[in-house]
Amino acid sequence: MTEPILSMRRLGKTHGVGAQRVDALVSVDLDLLPGELVAITGRSGSGKTTLLNMAGALDEPTTGEVIVDGQNLATLSKQELARVRRVSVGYVFQQFNLLPSLTAAENISLPLELDGMKPALARELAEKSLDEVELGGMADRYPDQLSGGEQQRVAIARGLVGPRSVLLADEPTGALDEATSESILKLIRSRCDAGAAALLVTHEPAYAAWADRVVRLRDGRVEGISVRSKTPSSTADLS
C-alpha cells in the first residue's frame, strides 16, 4: 500500500480562551497520497484555510499532529519548519502569489535558492517548471507583466518546483474568470496525474469535482467525504 505523503491525525485548532474560545478545527483525520488531488469544501469559517495552514507548516495545531514526508511537524524547530516549506510543500493563494520585485523565473527559483541551491541550477529548474505550466517564454517577466491566470500558473510551478511534491492551494481560482479557472484546475489535475499531490480549498462544488476525493468541513469538523471514480476533462463534463 502507498504511504501518504501528507497525513493529519486528530487535528484540532482552538483560538482564544474562556468565553472567547473558538474551535476552528476539531479532530480532523486526513491522508494525502502521491498523485492524489483532494478538495476541501465548506462555508466561510468552516476551517478550510486553517486546515491548509497547518498542513503547510504555517500554523501550529492545538491538538493532533501533521506528518509531511514522514516528518512530524510538531517535533521540528522553526528552522526545520522553514525547510519543510522550502522542499516539501508549495502554496498557492487566491491573490498576491508572487513577489513583485522578482521575475517569474526568480519567483519560482526563490525556495530553491533560499535552500542554498546555486542560482544557475535553480534557474534551470525554474525554467523547466515554467515549461511544464506552458509559460516557457515568460521567465523574465515581472508579475505586473503577467495576467491573473499566468500569475497563478507561475505560483503552481513554484509550488511544485524541485523536490516539492505537495501543493496546497487556497482558493486558487477565486479571483479568476471561469475559463481561466478551468485552465488552472486542469493544470493542477495534470500535475497530480504526473505524480504530485494537491490539497485544494474551494467553496465551488464544480471545482471540487476535479478532485479524487472531496472533504466537506462544517464548523471545523469533517462532515463527509466523497470519492470520484472518473476525473472530468472539463467543467462542462460536471454539469
Partner: peptide
C-alpha cells in the same frame, strides 16, 4: 509569501 515559501527568520 516569503515565509510560506520557506524563508526562515534569518532570511
Amino acid at each position: 509569501l516569503m515565509g510560506a515559501n520557506g524563508a526562515s527568520v534569518k532570511h
